[in-house]
């Protein structure tokens, strides 16, 4: 018998005895979480006690409130968030970054917004789409990507290997610049997951990453240091 069958066999044997539902000291039965259909279980759970959106931190209903919340959360995370009025402003913001940090070369990927950004910068660009040299990417001053969603509740962004130029582009260069559209803002995490699932089922990109602030560590005396292994800076330009 294979190890797979051995393990599954032990699991089935163990599960012949029911376990009490947690938090109820055995008083509440658990037939609403039956073996059948996980989707039905989720609906049953929601019908009994609500959904994650009812318990997670509150998010305002209007877009203006949500942008305000996003900006506040991003600032708490030490990310730089700029809400811009036009493509001209976007261009100006990019040039300001380029000059302030003396960028010489950036890495990016093919995309309507990212192409615009690269053109605006007027710098040599390493494009990842058709493969790239890792050492070269490591030398780039910034990684410029698009994203799938901005999440007001957390001040973070969701990227995927398909929408953001692969797996490394958003973590290898020292500065990650995200270019986003206003319509990409979602209220909370459940909305972000629902959106991604709807957008990509059944063919998910091999990586989906929720990026919430620049890379950080607290492993030395619990003191916050930015740029542990990933980018030291995260800039989100939204127009």
């Amino acid at each position: 018998m294979s190890e797979r069958e051995n393990i599954l066999g032990r699991i089935r044997e163990a599960l012949k005895v029911n376990a009490p539902l947690p938090g109820w000291h055995g008083e509440r039965s658990a037939e609403h979480l039956s073996a059948g259909d996980p989707a039905a279980n989720a609906r049953n759970l929601a019908a009994r006690s609500g959904t994650a959106s009812d318990w997670l931190p509150l998010v305002g209903a209007s877009v203006a409130e949500q942008f305000e919340l996003f900006a506040k959360n991003a600032a708490d995370l030490k990310a730089d968030f700029q809400l811009l009025a036009s493509r001209d402003e976007l261009k100006a913001a990019l040039l300001k970054l380029r000059d302030a940090e003396k960028w010489r070369r950036v890495a990016s990927h093919d995309g309507e917004l990212s192409n615009f950004a690269c053109k605006a910068l007027g710098l040599p660009v390493l494009l990842t789409d058709r493969g790239y040299d890792v050492q070269e990417m490591e030398q780039c001053d910034a990684g410029i990507t698009e994203c799938d969603a901005l999440i007001a509740q957390t001040g973070g962004v969701a990227v995927t290997s398909r929408s953001a130029g692969g797996r490394a582009l958003s973590v290898l260069p020292p500065h990650h610049v995200v270019i986003a559209r206003r319509e990409q803002l979602v209220a909370d995490l459940p909305a972000a997951f629902a959106f991604l699932q709807q957008k990509y089922t059944p063919d998910f990109p091999s990586m989906i990453s929720f990026i919430t602030g620049p890379s950080r560590t607290g492993d030395i005396e619990r003191i916050l240091v930015l740029g542990a292994h990933g980018p030291k800076k995260l800039t989100i330009l939204c127009y």
Binding site: H109, T128, D129, R130, G131, Y132, S161, R162, G165, G166, R167, V171, F204, P205, S206, M207, I208, S209, F210, I211, T212, G213, P214, S215, R216, G230
Partner: peptide, 15 residues
């Protein structure tokens, strides 16, 4: 900071 879901090795079309 990073919550990442992996669903496979590099897929066709990924770089």
């Amino acid at each position: 900071c990073y919550n990442t879901m992996y669903s496979g090795p590099r897929q066709p079309g990924e770089c």
